[in-house]
Design a protein around this nucleic acid. Structure first.
Lengths: 138, 138
DNA sequence: CTGTTAAATGCAATCTACTTGCATGTAAGG
DNA sequence: CCTTACATGCAAGTAGATTGCATTTAACAG
């Protein structure tokens, strides 16, 4: 557990509970974004029983604080990954087996400025995921 | 109703039913991607009563045939837009009021090739949506 | 260390988006 | 028309996510 995380929680008036430590530990063990059910399964496996509702509530809260990132692959559910210590990046998912890979790149910095000029929106985020077929499923 | 659409349906062994004409008409009236509930509401308003289940089934089918595009804004539901006659594009949604704008651009053609080389996936699609705050909500 | 309290949790119930099974209806080609 | 494969409506069922409320616990003052 990083001190920086404890600090962010405190700044948000949040407590550092057993459940939160365990949830963050599960996320830190996984590089790739995982589902709520997978987080919960990880907790059970680590003998840290936490209600599924608590997992939902904490992931939402950690996302609000910017400690966790939500990723949607059009699967009908969200996936989550820790932000801390990782560069901004995107993903690709195989349409066959569902396998996910990190793509350590982002081509959108310049484009964001252009969009802000064109739309008068202030842009504060984007979702970019690729889809295709992995070598095994092709 | 475009002849091209009737042709695509026939090629897929699909019939050109009252429900399908009406669903496509509702989508064609909307430039921006709309929810299943909004499509259904549009049908009711046009005095073309079609069961919500039929809307779901047809949107899924039209998407398979490539006549309709599904867009996800992490709202817990999908939105749909017609493909026919429109250039490939992306969107931005306001985090305050939910308003959506079309962005008639796509910076990903070159990047896709690079990703295919790096990952050995064959890339056949991507999702790119921007988020921010519109002038009114800012 | 102990008492206080605001925040967090667990459990049960609920909600919403979406899907499935099956009997009936209908478009399309002969 | 007649046939038939495809499409629809209705009812019931899933799955992911949320809410209400009583109980527990982290954090902090004293």
């Amino acid at each position: 557990m990083e001190a920086a995380i404890a600090k962010s929680l405190k700044a948000g008036g949040k407590k550092l509970t057993r459940a939160r430590k365990a949830i963050l530990a599960v996320l830190e063990r996984n590089t790739l974004p995982i589902t709520v059910a997978e987080v919960h399964a990880g907790l059970v496996k680590a003998k840290t029983d936490v209600d599924l509702v608590t997992v939902y509530r904490n992931l939402a809260m950690l996302q609000e604080l910017g400690l966790v990132n939500a990723v949607g692959f059009q699967e009908g559910q969200m996936r989550y990954e820790v932000v801390h210590g990782r560069a901004h990046h995107h993903h690709i998912q195989c349409r066959g087996c569902g396998k996910i890979l990190d793509l350590m790149l982002c081509p959108l910095k310049k484009l964001t400025k252009l969009i802000e000029e064109q739309t008068r929106f202030s842009v504060d985020g984007h979702a970019l995921e690729f889809f295709g077929w992995c070598p095994q499923c092709r």
